[in-house]
């Protein structure tokens, strides 16, 4: 086995150690300490950028969520306002209509009452006229039939008795 057999040669171990120290030392210095931190820095920078971008996206989403919630609240408030306005307008209109209706009603009732009064007055006057006509007719009839003169008071009494049977 040369790995052990060559150990007794005077140049073997010192050459192996010398070259190993040289090459591994160079690798450690230039690759381990020189290149590796740069590669790691690149990876870290990328990770940080990704994390920042994700955080920015999250912040933007939160902001948009907040704006949307705000908008929704305002829309709801506006809708409630509008509903209030509509309700008050409706109530006002209803009250107005009621008032006008009541006024119209009372007007109509007043006109009805006056008409009724007129009618009853007309009837009374008509009745009175009928009585006076009847008294004259009665006087005339009695004069023509019997030739007796009937005074107006008697005739009126008789007519009244006859009409109010």
């Amino acid at each position: 086995m040369p790995q052990i057999g060559q150990l007794s040669l005077d140049w073997y171990l010192v050459s192996q150690i010398f070259w190993l120290a040289l090459v591994f030392g160079a690798i450690f210095l230039f690759i381990g300490r020189g290149m590796l931190p740069k590669v790691e820095a690149t990876v870290e920078a990328r990770d940080r950028k990704i994390a920042n971008d994700l955080a920015a996206a999250k912040a933007a989403r939160d902001a948009s969520d907040a704006i949307e919630a705000d908008w929704r609240a305002r829309v709801n408030a506006a809708r409630a306002d509008a509903q209030g306005v509509v309700a008050t307008a409706k109530a006002k209109a209803a009250k107005d209509a009621e008032k006008r209706l009541a006024k119209a009603n009372s007007d109509a009732e007043a006109r009805l009452a006056s008409a009724e009064a007129e009618i009853s007055q007309a009837r009374n006057s008509a009745l009175a006229e009928i009585e006076s006509v009847a008294v004259e007719v009665t006087q005339d009839l009695v004069t023509r039939l019997s030739g007796a003169k009937v005074n107006a008071a008697d005739a009126a009494r008789a007519v009244k008795a006859g009409l109010n049977v």
Partner: peptide, 18 residues
């Protein structure tokens, strides 16, 4: 220290590896 240091095939492959 009196011991000869040789360029060997092992040394060449170490350099190639590096």
């Amino acid at each position: 220290a009196g011991l000869p240091v040789m360029l060997t095939n092992s040394a060449v492959w170490m350099l190639v590896t590096g």
